[in-house]
Design a protein around this nucleic acid. Structure first.
Length: 946
DNA sequence: GAGCACTGC
């Protein structure tokens, strides 16, 4: 392994590649050049360029803010690493970053956005002239589907690789192979992996990923220093209260500069904000008019005045003593914790009555809450510099850790906790838990204090606790289901996913669960039944993709939803299925109204909105057939109503809808409409803003479509005779869970309690709740979800029959649902493979049902055709030879028989030759036609539109 | 009878 070149001491080297044919020189205006020189320029340019020239793959390591994202593409461009036949591509894990970086680099280089462009999910400005392209990682992954070797690129840069987003991980795995394939073709591709922290072992010490470890180049940080302060003690419970005390202390005693507080959830954020505003009432001028938290009661006003008088006193006494250096403590492990501890002890006495008695150093105060669902008016406020003499205090969830950078932050208060989603690998149930962050996350949070000037980070836990943190957060790919990723990989013809060079592989259980789901959805070919036992292990995780799977892979949604889309080209269901899938993908369509209120007034307002939303949900769900589609009907109705009214922010506000989510749904519907049209142009789909509600029968088809997609999410109401314990009252049972699950109270089916339901997800809070619930008719289950049913022997009554349209033998079979053995009604299905099917087919053949001309021979037969159904031993020699011939030719249906005749016209029973056969079209199945052949269920079951 | 952090196609 080549040792990483030392950053500073490298000699100047000539740049490698020859000039390409067309090269747009960087022509910076004097102002731009001056502007650029003001920015710190990476001193490692020579080292990086030398490494790129020598190695196909290099890793560039440097903290956020080091300027590598904006500068490395420029170095490469200026060195001629791009032309019209191969450009520089940079991936980002976030859409805004891709867009903002392209704009910034274009500006710094004084080039048009036609040359330095971006491409993200719904938009982009890439042109023929584009030479540097910023994009999200998912966009590049989609491009690999169309052009596996990425021939449009000469350089690919994977930025923020340390964040280990699932797409970034898969890209790195794919690119490790693409680089060698391109080298073999003498079309070399350069790969740069850029990472903030030093977590590079997963890339360098992984021989399956990179046989030769790529060189690592470290670049200098451009961040301002942040002094880290640890608490001496770690509060066990009340970290919110600890945050409150720390923020008050900072505001009271430390010089101007924004404060950023990290908490774990929306409710906590709001609560702390309210408490801070009460302690230091905000300056009136800047709060948005609609902010419900700012309405101060008279009581609060009184406290405010009281605290102002004390503030003067506090200012006189406390401020002169405060010296910032006194707080300056070296980062963890340097043994300065005690000094900080002294500070805390000293002030311990003050802490107790901080709630009521606060001096604010004379500074005005603006406490704002920041989380994913913050309204736009709030966001504007957060990003505006506060007026002179006002201190900005932003209380935030994890959004502020990576997704958003707030300017002017000098102090960070870190509670050290984070709320994360956990998936049970076996059952798929998710829950949210608050845990300690990783050291890398804590450092990332601290770094938010050093964007504009040297800053301070106050950690509300001890350095010993910090030392026990995980070094890095586990990569996302190890923490969530991977069926979507596996489908994407199979679509790239990576069959043995187990051999894929993941930087960190998902767990075996997750891979198996993904493969099994995809098989059940029909996206992957099931291993042959005969081989199942013997070869199960071998076949596992190497099933090839089906035609249906390929279609599904082109839809940018989860495989369960992609299956729904693939099934929906019938009865005009596509526009509705697209809308339902879009809303299920966007999630959180409705405003969060359950937060605790700060005043009676607010409480009343929230109560009113909750009632209004509940009423609207009932309206959208409708009655009868429509209500049975349940929460998915609500989603469909909400989008329909909202679009009908023009999708205005006002409509959303009045009806408890999240405007941002509605806009996202609209864009996703557009994208899905395009995707469906691409697979199936005959559909001639378009987005109709005045979409009519589905008819009753359409609603029923939609329920069947939803059932087919969510088959592994089927639940059955616990029957009264099974009700042994009280905890099972109104409960449902699922195949994979021993414990009861419940319909969420926000569901429109909460009181309906249908016998069978499918659900979107189960979230465990106080109980296990199903969300996104839709009801299912029992007779649909064996027809739509045969892969989850174990079928009994064919029934004798009703007797097996011949289906002239499909040319096949049918029978009735009862079944039970897998693992739980729920009895399911008999439905008409294909007669199972085996000797009996040949016998029945032979009988129908002799009876003339298969080819009508044969019917006239019936009188000449020695015995009745039903003799065919006897055991071998009791067959007549003649009938036995017919059966043997059918078996030999594998002719157990009309098409197979015709094929056998075609192949061998002289075979024994060629009487049938020339007989006209009607209705030779391919079989039309219960729910087909889907978008591709075979996307319907595999049975012949007919579904009554009940 | 209710409390979900965050992101990409």
């Amino acid at each position: 392994m080549p040792a990483p070149p030392p950053p500073a001491a490298a000699p100047a080297l000539p740049r490698a590649p020859a000039k390409p044919a067309v090269f747009i020189p960087v022509n910076r205006s004097p102002e731009m050049q001056e502007e650029r020189l003001k920015l710190p320029i990476l001193s490692e340019e020579q080292v990086i360029m030398e490494a790129v020239a020598e190695h196909p793959i290099i890793i560039v390591c440097g903290e956020t803010g080091s300027g590598k994202t904006t500068q490395v593409p420029q170095f490469l461009y200026e060195a001629g690493y791009s032309s019209e036949d191969g450009i520089i591509g940079i991936t980002e894990p976030r859409r805004v970053a891709a867009m903002a970086m392209s704009q910034r680099v274009a500006k710094e280089m004084n080039l048009s956005q036609r040359v330095v462009s971006y491409q993200i999910r719904y938009e982009g400005n890439v042109t023929e002239e584009t030479r540097i392209k910023f994009m999200t990682d998912g966009v590049l992954l989609k491009e690999i589907q169309k052009d596996f070797l990425l021939l449009r690129y000469k350089v690919v840069i994977i930025d923020e690789a340390h964040e280990r987003s699932v797409y970034t991980d898969i890209l790195i795995g794919l690119l490790s192979r693409i680089v060698s394939l391109r080298a073999k073709r003498k079309l070399p591709l350069k790969l740069l992996i850029m990472s903030a922290t030093l977590r590079v072992e997963d890339f360098t010490q992984n021989p399956r990923l990179f046989a030769r470890p790529p060189p690592v180049i470290k670049v200098e940080s451009r961040q301002f220093p942040v002094t880290v302060h640890f608490n001496k003690r770690t509060p066990l419970e009340d970290y919110s209260g600890e945050c409150f005390r720390k923020v008050c202390k900072i505001h009271r005693m430390l010089p101007a500069g924004g404060i950023l507080v990290f908490l774990t959830g929306q409710a906590e954020v709001h609560a702390l904000c309210r408490r801070l505003r009460k302690a230091f009432p905000p300056s009136r001028s800047r709060l948005p008019e609609k902010d419900d938290d700012q309405k101060d009661s008279a009581e609060e006003m009184r406290k405010f005045k009281k605290s102002r008088t004390r503030a003067k006193k506090a200012r006189a006494e406390v401020l002169p003593q405060i010296n910032l250096d006194h707080y300056s403590v070296l980062p963890a492990g340097d043994g300065d914790e005690d000094r900080e501890a002294e500070v805390d002890e000293e002030e311990g006495a003050l802490d107790s009555d901080l709630d009521l008695d606060l001096g604010d150093g004379g500074m005005a105060w603006l406490a704002l809450s920041l989380h994913l669902h913050s309204t736009v008016s709030f966001l504007i406020l957060v990003f505006k510099p506060p007026p002179e003499g006002t201190r900005l205090c932003v209380v935030a969830t994890n959004v502020a850790e990576t997704s958003l950078t707030i300017p002017g932050i000098k102090y960070v208060v870190d509670c050290g906790k984070v709320k994360k989603r956990y998936y049970d690998r076996v059952t798929g149930v998710s829950s949210f838990r608050v845990t300690w962050v990783s050291q890398a996350s804590a450092d990332q949070r601290a770094g938010r204090a050093g964007r504009t000037e040297p800053g301070h980070c106050y950690r509300l836990y001890s350095s010993a606790v910090f030392g026990d943190f995980e070094q890095f957060p586990p990569p996302e790919i190890t923490r969530r289901p991977v069926e979507d990723l596996i489908l994407q990989m199979k679509a790239l013809n990576i069959e043995k996913v187990i051999n894929f060079p993941f930087p960190t592989p998902p767990s075996m259980e997750a891979l198996i669960a993904a493969e099994e789901l995809l098989i059940a959805l029909g996206a992957l070919q099931a291993p042959q039944k005969a081989e199942r036992v013997k070869q199960l292990q071998k076949d596992r995780l190497s099933c090839p993709i089906t035609a249906l799977g390929r279609t599904m892979a082109t839809f940018p949604v989860a495989p369960r939803y992609a299956k729904m889309l693939a099934l929906s080209r019938q009865h005009g269901c596509l526009p509705y299925a697209i809308t339902i899938v879009a809303t299920m993908t966007v999630r959180e369509l409705f405003e969060e109204l359950d937060r605790p209120a700060s005043s009676d007034e607010e409480l009343a307002r929230l109560k009113g909105k909750r009632a209004q939303l509940a009423q609207m949900k009932r309206t959208w769900a409708g009655q009868g057939a429509s209500l049975k589609l349940g929460d998915l009907m609500v989603l469909l109705g909400a989008v329909g109503a909202c679009e009908y009214s023009g999708c205005t922010p006002q409509f959303c506000e009045v009806n408890g809808l999240r405007y941002k989510a509605m806009m996202e749904t609209r864009r996703l519907r557009g994208q899905l409409t395009t995707a469906v049209n691409a697979v199936c142009p005959e559909a001639e789909l378009f987005m109709d803003p005045k979409m009519q509600p589905p008819t009753e029968s359409q609603v029923t088809f939609l329920r069947q479509i939803v059932t087919a997609g969510l088959g592994d999410h089927l639940a059955r109401r616990v029957q009264s005779e099974e009700l042994l314990e009280d905890k099972w009252r109104n409960a449902y049972k699922t195949p994979l869970l021993d414990d009861p699950v419940f319909i969420h109270p926000s569901s429109v089916l909460f009181k309906e309690l249908p016998e069978f339901v499918v659900y979107q997800e189960i979230v465990e809070t106080t109980k296990m709740y199903m969300k996104g619930v839709s009801s299912v008719e029992v007779q649909w289950i064996p027809a739509l979800l045969p892969s989850y049913c174990q079928f009994d022997k064919p029934l004798e009554e009703p007797a097996p029959s011949y289906c002239p349209a499909r040319g096949r033998v049918l029978c009735h079979r009862a079944s039970v649902f897998y693992r739980v053995g729920w009895p399911l009604p008999a439905i008409e299905v294909d007669f199972p493979e085996g000797i009996d099917r040949y016998k029945h087919f032979a009988r129908f053949l002799l009876e003339g049902q298969v080819f009508c001309k044969l019917a006239s021979y019936q009188g000449c037969l020695l015995s009745s055709p039903s003799t065919m159904l006897k055991t071998w031993a009791r067959l007549q020699p003649r009938t036995e030879s017919l059966l043997r011939a059918l078996v030999a030719e594998k002719a157990d249906c009309r098409d197979a028989l015709l094929a056998a005749w075609k192949k061998n016209p002289r075979c024994e029973f060629d009487q049938g030759q020339g007989v006209g056969v009607d209705g030779m079209g391919s079989p039309r199945q219960a729910l087909s036609p889907g978008l591709v052949e075979g996307s319907g269920p595999t049975t012949a079951g007919r579904l009554p539109a009940t």
